[in-house]
Amino acid sequence: MRDTGRGRGTARAGADIVHLPHKNAVGPLRQVVRRLVLALLVMALTVLIVYIDRAGYHDNAGGSMSLLDCVYYATVTLSTTGYGDVVPYSASARLTNVLLVTPLRVLFLIILVGTTLEVLTERTREQYRQQRWRSAVRDHTVIVGYGTKGRSAARTLTGHGVPAQRIVVVDPDPKAVESAVSAGFAGVTGDATRNDVLLRAEIQRAKELIIAAQRDDTAVLVALTARQLNKRINIVASVREEENAPLLRQSGANAVVTSSGAAGRLLGMSMLSPSAGEVMEELISYGSGLDLIERPVTKAEAGLDPREVGDLVVVVKRGHRLLDHDNPEASPLQLTDRLIVIHRTSQDDPSHVPQG
């Protein structure tokens, strides 16, 4: 098999877990800084309370209570060290300790141990989220490879109405998976040619698989593995070299796109007819004005001729047959038909019917 692509990365051991997107996630450094600031505020408040009533405290070293003595007393009190060299002896100082300093001490300790508690809570919460995700995810789309092709495929799917929660990205690069999670997708770090990695992506319950790997041999192995785990899944794969496309179809891919060939044809068209090349680029770029989409026939369109439909019908899909718009068999349209049309729309156009 000929392949001019880059080398495939190797997944780190134990890294091929499912990463789910978090809403308003706060970084660990920011959490530590925030807790440190809260602890300092509690200490400063305690120092102020002691300093205001410093006359009610007794220092075994003699002399009156200075600001430094108040800071020292607040420190050893909040940390529960309690050397006993500085003690409250007046009724007001002792009452202040009971009503104010003791609650502040408890709050200070909660802030200190809060980081450990939050880590344990976060682990429990993450396990629950993953269990809930695994029980709910089905008929989703798995994208193998989150490079330029994978990101474009994900944007196209979400642009056509596919929820981000129904897309799972698999990539051996942790940074690529992190980027996918930031975009709202679930991510799995690992080698998609391995059964266990695809099973973590719930490939056995997936409806579609998009293979956008960097190497053609990787794409073939992923297709073979996925087809073994899920006989009914629809596989669309990308290859760099045209000569590898038949092998990928034999490996189980339902459709194969040759990236170099498609780019070359678009370049040639743009050279011969810049306007035609611009239109083709607009058709394959969702939301740019003209969109090439597949949609079902609506009730209002059933029984009409394809030329009477508001959108420009290119092909009528009837069962497994593709009928040109001017084919006599395509008229009249049936409710079970699907139309491949050119539709002028924007992403917020309510008349747009997403692919379903």
Score class of each variant (00 low, 15 high):
residue 94 R to T: 07
residue 96 T to N: 11
residue 253 A to V: 08
residue 110 I to C: 11
residue 117 L to W: 14
residue 116 T to P: 01
residue 230 N to S: 12
residue 195 N to K: 15
residue 163 P to F: 01
residue 250 Q to G: 08
residue 62 G to I: 09
residue 204 Q to Y: 07
residue 355 Q to C: 11
residue 252 G to C: 10
residue 100 L to G: 01
residue 285 S to C: 03
residue 105 R to Q: 15
residue 120 L to E: 05
residue 135 S to R: 14
residue 33 V to E: 09
residue 354 P to N: 14
residue 109 L to F: 06
residue 279 V to N: 05
residue 158 T to P: 04
residue 263 A to Q: 11
residue 184 G to S: 03
residue 170 V to Q: 02
residue 225 T to R: 15
residue 222 V to C: 06
residue 106 V to P: 02
residue 293 I to M: 12
residue 132 R to Y: 07
residue 2 R to V: 14
residue 209 L to V: 08
residue 54 R to H: 14
residue 138 R to P: 01
residue 106 V to N: 05
residue 133 W to D: 01
residue 140 H to F: 01
residue 334 Q to R: 15
residue 307 R to Y: 05
residue 31 Q to K: 13
residue 190 G to R: 00
residue 83 Y to W: 10
residue 104 L to D: 03
residue 169 V to P: 00
residue 296 P to F: 09
residue 293 I to Y: 07
residue 214 Q to D: 13
residue 279 V to P: 00
residue 300 A to M: 07
residue 322 L to N: 10
residue 259 S to A: 14
residue 311 D to M: 06
residue 14 G to S: 11
residue 179 S to L: 10
residue 273 S to H: 04
residue 206 A to E: 01
residue 213 A to S: 14
residue 5 G to R: 14
residue 22 H to V: 09
residue 228 Q to C: 04
residue 223 A to L: 09
residue 346 S to G: 15
residue 44 A to T: 03
residue 164 A to M: 04
residue 139 D to A: 03
residue 53 D to Q: 14
residue 129 R to D: 11
residue 3 D to K: 07
residue 50 V to F: 11
residue 285 S to T: 15
residue 147 G to K: 08
residue 59 D to V: 06
residue 341 V to D: 09
residue 187 G to D: 00
residue 103 P to L: 06
residue 159 G to S: 04
residue 286 Y to K: 13
residue 155 R to F: 03
residue 135 S to H: 07
residue 217 D to G: 10
residue 280 M to G: 02
residue 187 G to V: 00
